[in-house]
Every structure is written in structure tokens, then in C-alpha cells.
Amino acid sequence: MAAGTFGGAPWPLLAVWIAGALGWGVVLGLLRRSGVTGTGAFLHAITPVTLVLGFAFAGFGSAYATVFMSVQWWTLLAATGGRLDRLFRGGPSGLVCAVLWLALTLAAAFAATRALL
């Protein structure tokens, strides 16, 4: 095993995986608390697998998918203030929240990708 790795995976990548798993769990918990069931919970549950497969199909590795996935959940929490229903209200406030989430995600994904990969 090489120095600076855990089971052959570098520490920064492990940190991203852990951040992604924690973010996924927090968002799932908030979805369940707000009463989202059925399709919404199912789509959230399959997001990690489909995102990694989508990036692999497009020719990128799973590291990019993992960074993007981690960033998007934490920026979602930041953009909505932990109240995910703000995205679904509609009207100007929902649009502002969605645009803020997109801008934060793009900026954070760019910065994290440059720092880690």
C-alpha cells in the first residue's frame, strides 16, 4: 500500500466519498422529514449510482462524479438553508433558490475539482 493512501485510495478522494455519503444522508433525512415519499425518495436513493454511471458513460471517471455529487448536496443545503421545500414552492423565490444552488454548485465543483484532482 502506498504512503498517503487507505486501501489504495488517496486520502482526499476518501474525504470526498465521506462528504458525499454524509450529504446524501442529510438530504435524505430532510426529504423524509418534510414528508417526501414515493418518487422523490426513490430518485434521491438512486442518484449516486446513476450519476457515477452517467459520468463513466460520458468518459469521465467516478472521481469527478463523486466530487460533483458531494458538492451538489452541500450547496443544496446552503442554498435552501436546510429547507428543501423552498425549491418546490414555485414563483420567484423558488427560481432564485434554484439559480443560487446552480451557481454555488458550479463554483464549488470547479474549486474542489481543481484542488483534489
Results as ranks from 00 to 15, higher is better:
residue 2 A to T: 10
residue 2 A to V: 01
residue 6 F to M: 00
residue 7 G to T: 04
residue 10 P to A: 12
residue 10 P to H: 15
residue 11 W to M: 04
residue 13 L to M: 13
residue 15 A to R: 00
residue 15 A to W: 02
residue 16 V to R: 13
residue 18 I to G: 00
residue 21 A to P: 12
residue 22 L to C: 11
residue 23 G to R: 05
residue 23 G to Q: 03
residue 23 G to I: 08
residue 24 W to D: 04
residue 26 V to P: 11
residue 26 V to D: 05
residue 29 G to D: 00
residue 34 S to H: 09
residue 36 V to N: 04
residue 37 T to Q: 13
residue 37 T to R: 14
residue 39 T to W: 11
residue 39 T to E: 07
residue 40 G to I: 03
residue 41 A to L: 15
residue 41 A to I: 04
residue 41 A to Y: 09
residue 43 L to M: 13
residue 44 H to E: 03
residue 44 H to N: 04
residue 45 A to R: 06
residue 46 I to Y: 13
residue 46 I to G: 05
residue 46 I to C: 02
residue 48 P to Q: 00
residue 49 V to S: 07
residue 49 V to K: 03
residue 51 L to N: 10
residue 52 V to P: 05
residue 53 L to G: 05
residue 54 G to L: 02
residue 55 F to N: 09
residue 57 F to I: 01
residue 57 F to R: 12
residue 58 A to D: 06
residue 59 G to M: 15
residue 59 G to F: 15
residue 60 F to I: 06
residue 60 F to C: 07
residue 65 A to S: 03
residue 67 V to S: 06
residue 68 F to P: 00
residue 69 M to C: 15
residue 70 S to R: 04
residue 71 V to P: 05
residue 71 V to C: 11
residue 71 V to Y: 14
residue 72 Q to N: 12
residue 75 T to M: 03
residue 83 R to S: 07
residue 87 L to D: 01
residue 87 L to N: 07
residue 90 G to M: 12
residue 91 G to F: 15
residue 93 S to A: 09
residue 97 C to N: 05
residue 99 V to S: 04
residue 99 V to R: 08
residue 100 L to P: 06
residue 103 A to C: 10
residue 106 L to G: 10
residue 109 A to P: 01
residue 110 F to Q: 09
residue 112 A to V: 02
residue 112 A to Y: 02
residue 114 R to E: 08
residue 114 R to L: 02
